[in-house]
Design a protein around this nucleic acid. Structure first.
Lengths: 188, 188
DNA sequence: CTTGGCTATGCAACGAGTTGCATAGAAAGA
DNA sequence: TCTTTCTATGCAACTCGTTGCATAGCCAAG
């Protein structure tokens, strides 16, 4: 149940509402974790009733009220406990790879479009990460010296960048292979 | 619901029992998809009752009977349909990255051991993949020319290799960062 | 002026995935 | 001999995660 921990980290970095968390999960935290707003609201309520979080109701005009969550003592302790546990290395879950192997039982060339589309998405993500890196860490507007939290955010972002670069290179390899098979063995 | 599709691909590559599938999911298919035997048995039963698979009961002596599943017409059609659909590019779910960002709120050096352990696991996986590549595709015992299915298996395996190499390099980067922070700012 | 998007939260239902347990005989190692 | 491991399947209970829907007022674009 690492969604809880991802939420703790995100709220320690900055308190916020469920809605705000959901948006963060589409951006920075979402580089390596995703969740829908449903998931987030449900877990937030549970974490609050477990005493890991505190809520503050912020009435807003012309907008629904907002519940701002922040981490309290037991939440911080829970995160610390988790950091000292060991987790098992993640295992992949890569639909596209399943499709690629499956293409052997159909026409491989039907996947060319799909793989191109994925390549496009990963290119955009890479550009987005690189822009973020410039903005926050390596560009002229970035702070001249970084604290520990920023250093760690940067190394995670470098992981995201490395992942996208690797993925793009691999998808090019896949496209070459699919096109080679397409011309060599035209299917029905 | 891509587990269904992963099972279809695996059974098209070679019919087998739930138990055998579970073992494959620890090896080749498992490079990019995982499932427990529970998951697999349950889905197999559903797929069979949906008419996607056929079962053959193989009585065995001194061993529980085995149910060998194979893909039948509608199963093949379901796979083909799925191949023509588009799927959304996967999104990460990387516990370790959550931990790394979380380490800012504790002592970063507690993660060194953990990251080293993950690095070790990924090194072993890389060695395992490279051995498999030698055996099946690039070594002297590999078939001299490959059919489409083998080409596609190979390009997926190359993806696994690229992934592991990238991950190992990134974990080295993480270790450098953690160690730098550990000496620069010794915590309580 | 109407459609769609944004903020903000939530219910209900479902499907996906994990964990613990159970059975049961055979072979291999301590 | 005793314990563990392997083959082979399965139930029950649970948590995790997704999808569709609902509310509700505001703002911007067509």
């Amino acid at each position: 149940m690492a969604l809880e921990h991802a939420i703790l980290v995100s709220l320690l970095e900055k308190p916020g509402s469920g809605y705000e968390l959901a948006r963060r999960f589409e951006r920075s935290i979402g580089y390596f974790w995703t969740a829908t707003h449903q998931q987030i609201y449900r877990v937030l309520r549970r974490m609050e009733s477990d005493g890991l979080l505190a809520v503050r109701e912020l009435p807003q005009q012309s907008r629904p009220d907002k519940k701002e969550y922040s981490v309290v003592g037991p939440g911080r302790a829970a995160l610390s406990r988790w950091l000292h546990e060991s987790i098992q290395p993640e295992s992949m879950r890569h639909d596209l790879a399943v499709k690629i192997r499956g293409a052997a039982f159909d026409d491989p060339s039907v996947l060319v479009r799909e793989v191109e589309r994925h390549r496009q998405v990963h290119s955009e993500r890479l550009a987005h990460y690189l822009a973020g890196e410039q903005r926050d860490f390596t560009g002229p507007a970035a702070p001249p010296s970084l604290d520990a939290a920023q250093e760690l955010q940067h190394v995670v972002l470098r992981g995201g960048i490395a992942y996208e670069r690797m993925t793009i290179a691999w998808l090019d390899d896949v496209l070459d292979t699919l096109r080679r098979l397409g011309t060599a063995e035209p299917h029905a």
